[in-house]
């Protein structure tokens, strides 16, 4: 449980507490607006990777839905 607790703290609480001081003005978004700066900048590759790892490993999901939609033997 301690690992989970640490992760929850690290991943959720920390960014939330800092939200008020973070961020940019709308006119400062030139870098963030670039296609290569999107969190999933290449959806096709991301989809292909998810399919490979869903088929070969026991975990799935995270950045998107965990469902597979394949027999994947």
């Amino acid at each position: 449980m301690s690992v989970k607790l640490f992760l929850v703290t690290f991943a959720v609480v920390l960014p939330l507490t800092g939200c008020a001081n973070l961020g940019v003005e709308p006119w400062q978004r030139n870098v963030l607006a670039k296609p290569e700066m999107q969190l999933i900048s290449d959806p096709i590759s991301a989809g292909l990777d998810d399919h490979i790892y869903f088929s070969k490993e026991a975990s799935s999901g995270g950045r998107g839905f965990a469902g597979g939609g394949c027999g994947c033997n």
Binding site: P15, L22, F65, A66
Partner: peptide
């Protein structure tokens, strides 16, 4: 189910956390 939070940190940094349940 998926619940996510995306946060712009600064002009050159963006971060995301999410929880998913299946």
């Amino acid at each position: 189910l998926i619940f996510g939070l995306t946060q712009v940190i600064d002009r050159k940094t963006i971060m995301q956390v999410s929880y998913s349940f299946s």
